[in-house]
């Protein structure tokens, strides 16, 4: 049924390109009639997809092996917040956080790493050991005084409290892709468990 529709549209008006690669179905309007042109997609074969994937990963690995990846950036998850960082950045972590001044730490929850030519996206985090993000604690201080003001209207009730939260300042030292992409060493594939219908 759909194919006949498409043919009809094609015959009436040669708007659609010959190679139907558009993904979203487009609606063509003419003479008070709306007809649906169902999108047709030429899907690459599995072997094609596999080839392009391996080639792309090989390119990224080559870039990293040559040291030509350039400046990298990363999205890290630290103490409940996400930061987009690149070497020499400063980030501040709010709240109680034990590391103290001069400590060198590795930020291990890396959600994304990118360079000029590639991006590695974690689902949600990249495998441990793939990327090394090193940072130094340079300052631990208190924030400015923040007021908390409560008021209940018409109830003669109001309170004004103050507090200062802990701030830990981190200097990002380096972001390095330290192992091969898509070469998991000791990853275990767990079969997906589905709730029975």
């Amino acid at each position: 049924m759909f194919s006949s529709l498409v043919r009809g549209v094609l015959n009436s008006r040669a708007i659609l390109p010959k190679c139907l690669k558009t993904c979203s179905p487009s609606v063509l309007q003419f003479s008070n009639k709306t007809q649906l042109a169902v999108a047709q997609e030429v899907l690459p074969s599995d072997s094609d997809i596999r080839l392009t994937t391996t080639n792309t990963i090989q390119k990224v690995n080559d870039l990293i092996a040559q040291g030509a990846e350039g400046r990298l950036f990363a999205v890290v998850h630290v103490a409940g917040k996400q930061f987009k960082i690149t070497p020499e950045d400063i980030i501040i972590i709010e709240g109680y956080w034990p590391p103290t001044n001069g400590d060198q730490i590795n930020l291990e929850k890396v959600m994304l790493v990118g360079g000029t030519d590639f991006t590695l996206i974690g689902r949600p985090v990249l495998p441990q050991g793939l990327v090394t993000v090193r940072a130094t604690v340079i300052e631990k201080d208190l924030s400015h005084t923040k007021p908390i003001f409560y008021k209940k209207r018409r109830k003669q009730y109001q309170r004004l409290n103050f507090y200062r939260s802990h701030y830990t300042m981190l200097r990002i030292n380096e972001i390095v892709v330290s192992s091969d992409v898509n070469n998991p060493s000791d990853t275990v594939q767990v079969e997906r468990t589905l709730a029975s219908p």
Binding site: G70, R71, L72, F73, K81, F83, K84, I85, T86, E88, D89, I90, I91, I92, I93, E94, T100, N101, G114, G115, T116, T119, I138, E139, K140, D141, L142, S143, H144, T145, Y167, M169
Partner: peptide, 25 residues
């Protein structure tokens, strides 16, 4: 607490992040 401070005056931070290279891609 003094040893971990940098000595700058108390300031309200507009952002908890600073970068010299805002965009790589």
């Amino acid at each position: 607490h003094f040893t971990t401070q940098s000595g700058k005056k108390v300031m309200r931070y507009r952002k908890l992040w600073h970068t010299e290279s805002p965009s790589i891609q």
